[in-house]
Each structure stands twice: as C-alpha cells, then as structure tokens.
Design a protein around this nucleic acid. Sequence first.
DNA 1: TCCCAGGCTTGGT
DNA 2: ACCAAGCATGGG
Length: 274
Amino acid sequence: MDNILCIKRPKHFDLDKIFDCGQCFRFEKGDDNVWEGVAYGRVLRASQDDENIYLNCTKDEFDKLWQKYLGLDLDYDEVNADIIKHFEPGVMQSAIEAGDGIRIMRQEPWETLCSFIISQNNNIPRIKSLISAVCRNYGEKFEYNGKEYYAFPTPEALLAAGEEGLKALKTGFRAGYLISAAEHCSNGMDLCKIRDEYTYEQGLDELCTIKGVGPKVASCTLLFALDKTGAFPVDVWIKRTIDKYFGGSLDVSSLGDYAGIAQQYLFYYERSLK
DNA sequence: TCCCAGGCTTGGT
DNA sequence: ACCAAGCATGGG
C-alpha cells in the first residue's frame, strides 16, 4: 500500500477550506476524512489532524510538486499583513479570520482553464459533475490501488471529442468554448509560458483571445494555476461584496500583489454568511 | 469606443 | 417561474 508522509501541520493551513473554497473541483472528502483527487497524472490523498498533515507521497515528491500544489511555498503571515495594508480594516479583517487556512493552490494550467470555462453560469455541484464526466469520457484511464481513475483530457483529446461529443455530456453552450481553448492550446498558446514569462495583464489579454474566455475565467486561471496572486476575479459573489462593503466600487489595481488571496477570503466569507 | 440588455444549455428549487 | 464562480452579440 501507500507510503504515507507525515509533516507538522503548518500555520494557516486547512485542507477542508483549501478544497472547499471553490478553487478546485476534482477533490472529494471520503468517509475516512481523506481528501482524494487526481492531479499531475496521479492520485493524491491528503488528510490532517491538529498536529500533522498526511500525504501519500515521498518527501522528494512533496518537495518537488505537492508543496507548491498545496500553496505551502508562501508565508501567509506575510500575505495577510500585506493584504491588510491595502484594505480598510473591518470586513477584510473579518474575512481573513473567517477564511484562515485557505491556501491558493497551484493547479494544472490546462485543467484549470477548462474548469473555469465550465463554471460559467453554473453552480459548484454541477461544475464538479460536468468535469468528472469530461474526464471519464475523454481522459486517460489509470489504476491506483486497484481502483480506476481518469486524468483530465488533453487538448487533443477534446478536439477529437468535438463540440458534439462535449455537448453530449450536457456542457451546453460551453462546448464550443472548450473547443476554442483546445484549438489555441494545441496550436501555439503556451500556458506555462504565460505563467513563467508574462505579467498578469499580458496573461489576461492572451487568455481572452480564446472564444468564451472573458475577464472572470481568465483571472481565475491566472490566480489558481498561473502564479498570478495579483489577479482579482470578480464574480456575482464578489460583486455583492463590493456593493455591500465597499460602496459599489473597488480599485483592483490598488490591492497589492496578493489581491487574489484577499478575493478568496472575501468570497469564502460572503458565502459562509449565506 | 463604450455601455447595456437579453440570450444561451442544463438542472435544481 | 427563477437562479447558478459569465460571455458573445447586437443596438444605441
């Protein structure tokens, strides 16, 4: 069976919030309290108690991949202090306290782009079930501990499926958008290059050349996969928050390098009041 | 050029 | 009927 790595639980780290705050759609918490999902072509299983976190990987894999995947390479004392400097105290302080433990993950770029295309005009349970259907139908199948899992399909696999193949999974008007994304990414658009060499603004312009990708989907991709913590996705929840606490407008360019993390705190806070 | 309104797939309530 | 982590489109 698995080799389990045990690590002292870091400050400001809570798997329940990380996987439940709406940034990630392919992890589920099992009856054994282990969060399980597929990323980077393999199954990750993660759990926690008050003292430790537990992962089914080696120390070497953790250092090379999962540490960054789980957002453990940033000092959130520093992040939170920077956020507070850029906001009026009040709701932001409450949001930081409510959302303590959230980490912005570094998910796979292509999967993240498609996931947020699918998220348009959808609710989270349906987003999850659509992504799962796309993987089951067009992703590569593999086995782990005797169970079957599916990778997220490549751009080429989505092109082979075609718009009709994706519509058959009830993706609706988003099917054509996924095809447009697949065409770009299999024909010159390099998401890793956007991550490594582009500014946030350049990345936003580039991603918005995909049909069906606007500022919201682009900034989610930049924030959750492409290392741009300054990206500030504005969705209906954040619009409500801006109306309610910030007098209807917010100058996103004044929010600092961690604006996107502030956005996650506000998003989590506002939804928790529901 | 910018702003605004209504449409779009589907499923849950 | 209305709503859900939006976007493309056309008209003014």
